[in-house]
Simulated scan of single mutants.
Amino acid sequence: MNKIILNKGKDKAAWQLHPWIFSGAIARVSETLQNGDIASVYNHDDEFIAYGMYNNQSRVAVRLLEWDPRKEINESWWRDRLQRAVKNRLHLLNEKNNTVRLVFAEADFLPGLIADKYGDYISIQVHAAGMERIKSILVDELNLLLKPKGIYERSDLKSREYEGLPDDNGLRSGETPPAFVDIIENGILYQVNIVEGQKSGFYCDQRDNRYITAKYAKDKKVLDCFCYSGGFTLNAFRENASSVTSVDSSALAIETLKQNIELNGYDSSKHVAVQSDVNKYLRELGEQGEKFDLIILDPPKYAPSRSTLEKASRAYKDLNRRGLMLLNSGGLLATFSCSGAMDIDTFKQVIAWAALDAGKEIQFIYQYCQPEDHPVRASFNEGEYLKGLLVRVL
């Protein structure tokens, strides 16, 4: 087995089961060690800590997998880990929901792997060199466990560049997904574009939050920003919103949303779909004196790292300031951040600053989080990326 020795004093996090070892923590490695190899990790005193996947091109040089020295990282180990991850989600699949995240990378001890079930198809993303090597094993096990019509890979993530990996999209098993795959979430029908849509095709991490937010939409005038294929919009119509305006910069997202409105039989006369930059559109609404009862702000990741947090905080503040200024008295703002670098306390402070600049008094009345198929591992706080606040304007 290849061996990695850590610098003195750089082993604390690894002993505490944190799955990442950064390149600066490594003293030396075996000469035979290649990127993607499994290696035994030892501290400065030559004590075994864990097994992990190595990659000298990545800032996260080792992704730890197993702390029990009696175990062997072989095909059976990989299959067992995947089986456990899938088993923990099966109860979420029913007649009202056939979409779920099957594997959430480090949270499931499978760093570098995302797998999502969309109806009869599975979409996977691989963003670690070691996981790339055993991808065929994982695809085979997913076939055995769930027997999907097809497994399609969408590995076009920025993180692959940091791992020294090129983009890799394509069919890995079975049938190529059609242009639009039919799924159901919260009893609502969607058409999902796995091959060309954003991320792996859909944002199932907002499943619970869509349902919760929609409970406030009855008879309300709703504005859904960064709407993508309409998750919050469709849930609002299910709860009898009086009208919904949906905004996204993507033409494909807007077209898919319109199809989803029709698919569910909702009244399109109560819906306005706008392809626009959200910040620009919010400014225009403010100039027109428009007001809403419920606004959803679900932007993309503004803070991919801690080094960008200050700039991202300003962007979040400006976005939310514009949203708050468009709300009627007593109106609600459901605002989200999917930036792992921004914790909930910082996010609350940003929203408080936004309210101050907007001249609004607010209350935080609910705190959103990611659903159970996106679990947070106790030793890996970085996995807690999605947070949100339901804000009432007084």
Rank of each mutant, 00 (worst) to 15 (best):
Y368A: 09
N240K: 13
K270C: 13
I365Q: 04
V350M: 04
V103A: 05
M131I: 10
Y228H: 14
V376I: 08
A303G: 03
R63G: 08
V247R: 03
S173L: 11
I184R: 15
L333D: 00
I295S: 02
D345T: 14
S339M: 04
V41A: 09
R89D: 04
A107M: 13
M325C: 11
V62D: 09
M342R: 01
K387N: 02
K96F: 11
R133V: 06
E132T: 12
L171S: 07
A358S: 13
I134W: 01
G164R: 11
A273V: 07
D343M: 07
D357H: 12
R101T: 06
T99N: 07
A341K: 10
G170M: 05
L389K: 01
R321P: 03
N2M: 15
Q370P: 02
G331L: 01
S155H: 13
G383D: 01
D108S: 11
L64G: 01
H271P: 10
E255K: 15
Y368P: 00
I184N: 04
F237W: 06
D37R: 03
W20L: 10
D120Y: 04
K360V: 07
E196D: 13
K220S: 10
D80N: 15
A61C: 10
S123Y: 04
L138Y: 09
K387I: 03
L189F: 11
I151P: 03
R79W: 06
L319E: 00
K258E: 08
G174S: 07
K311M: 13
T346I: 10
L332I: 05
N143H: 11
D80C: 05
R283M: 09
